[in-house]
Design a protein around this nucleic acid. Sequence first.
DNA 1: ACCATACGATCAGAATATCTGATCGCTCTT
DNA 2: AAGAGCGATCAGATATTCTGATCGTATGGT
Lengths: 306, 306
Amino acid sequence: MVTLRQLRYFETLARTKHFGMAADQCAVTQPALSMQIKELERELGVELVERRGGTIAVTPAGQEIAARAEAILGQVRELSDYARQHQGVLTGSLRLGIIPSIAPYLLPEILTEVTKRYPQLDLQIRETQTSPLLEELIRGELDAVLVALPVEPPQLEAMPLFEDRFLIAVQSQAAPDWSKSDLRTRIGQERLLLLEEGHCLRDQALQFCQIANMQARRALGAASLTTIMQMVAAGHGITLLPELCARTEVDRKRVALIAFPEEPPRRIVGLAWRRSSARQSDFTALGQLIKSLRREAVGEGQPANV
Amino acid sequence: MVTLRQLRYFETLARTKHFGMAADQCAVTQPALSMQIKELERELGVELVERRGGTIAVTPAGQEIAARAEAILGQVRELSDYARQHQGVLTGSLRLGIIPSIAPYLLPEILTEVTKRYPQLDLQIRETQTSPLLEELIRGELDAVLVALPVEPPQLEAMPLFEDRFLIAVQSQAAPDWSKSDLRTRIGQERLLLLEEGHCLRDQALQFCQIANMQARRALGAASLTTIMQMVAAGHGITLLPELCARTEVDRKRVALIAFPEEPPRRIVGLAWRRSSARQSDFTALGQLIKSLRREAVGEGQPANV
DNA sequence: ACCATACGATCAGAATATCTGATCGCTCTT
DNA sequence: AAGAGCGATCAGATATTCTGATCGTATGGT
């Protein structure tokens, strides 16, 4: 008799193409996974993976079966989600992914508020860049993600939460030198500091500046905004900084923030989830909670112009 | 962690609304089933069934979850079927339903032929009337059914196999008395013997005779064609007999068969299965096999006219 | 050619999960 | 008030699944 356990293990194996890694992801030892895979093969009477020294290949039949298994596992997840709805909103566990340019600035407040208002909720956080987050979301390893919109995959649905304007961060001493009138031209003349490849923030900044700053690409990617801000403070360049990050990252003595006078470049921060998920009400509740946080926050900490 | 076992048990329970029966159907004892249901409820955090003395009720959440479970189980079945295709046609086990007016006459040959040509196939037979067969087919308890076409449910697909003409069976002594010219009128004057409610044969005969024989409904239903033929032989009435059954059921000394001169009433015998099943090639192979049997059989045993 | 390494298979024993059969307690019927 | 039917519960048996150690093989570097 086929079991869900077998399907779970096999789906992971088909994805990783590696017994050891798959076993890790399933949180069991490699022999345990091997045995279940073998049992599934015996059960179905089909060779699912070809074991060749060093590496393995998923057979064509295996591919198809992995796809079906994935669909089945998805439906089981939705069944559980549906059930969870019946014990009230935002209860049980919710796996939330957040991108690095949001997590540190919003997460503490989110956690405080969630603990206060939804003590039943066990919020599990994963912080990484947008594309792995979306993959994991689609695979069902995450329930929702907090990212910059839009999100492309059609099986996802998103709720915009707030607008996050970009400011220009420059070394304080240099600030008086910046006139608001020709910001864009001026940017083109500076060295633009950006995060490393893969961060959506980098892409957004590049997109905005592509006309203005053709030499931006030579800027090597930094691993964190903190690094970048230290470099700005030391006068090694400028950067585009989301308002959200400003309060935390900016040392007012050493760095000045310049707002765009009109039509500021901005990102939309939103919550995304699988369209097929049965936890819609959880997500809208969580979205509302974050929205409300942000409104208060914006109210108290006004954007700092020069 | 939700298991397929839990879903299987619960789906059965939701259908039977009875722990004991569900346990029987699942081939386990009642405590085993109770425990799995309880575990599923704990897992999902939802009460799935209301236990009230004597009887139980499936909660609304339970209904929805049972429906989802059913869908999931169906997909798992299809996954298995898909896999089975890969080890060649007509291997493994195949659960075939057959109606009583076909089974005794076709099954022996089918079994002989299947054993010869597909020794790998484990054919499990269920014999009952059309409507329970179709229900079980849709639920996935059967893989295919051999019935009179058409079959209505849209999720089923059917393959016509052969035409089975109806003959009139009368007591031998009375036979000379029948002129072919006005068969229909004549039928109206006789007592028509039919199977009990639920047999498609009864409905087909009634449909054909509805103009001719308005008093047919008073004929009490017999449980088997054998009973009916004994009564015909004893001169208690006449019946419409499918050609398929004639060789086996007719004692030529006591019963005569009269063929309709033109446009004989007939039934189409066919094989039906779930459209969603992944075993199409099994079914067409089985259909071909039955077709070929029938062609030979028709060739050797010509319909016996007066 | 030889060693080191990485990978998956295998095995024995331990830990879990699941099942059975007996029994209990409740509710409805008579 | 007694009996029948039903599901829950419990203890012990059984089957499944897991772990940790070990093995054999293929591969790549030297």
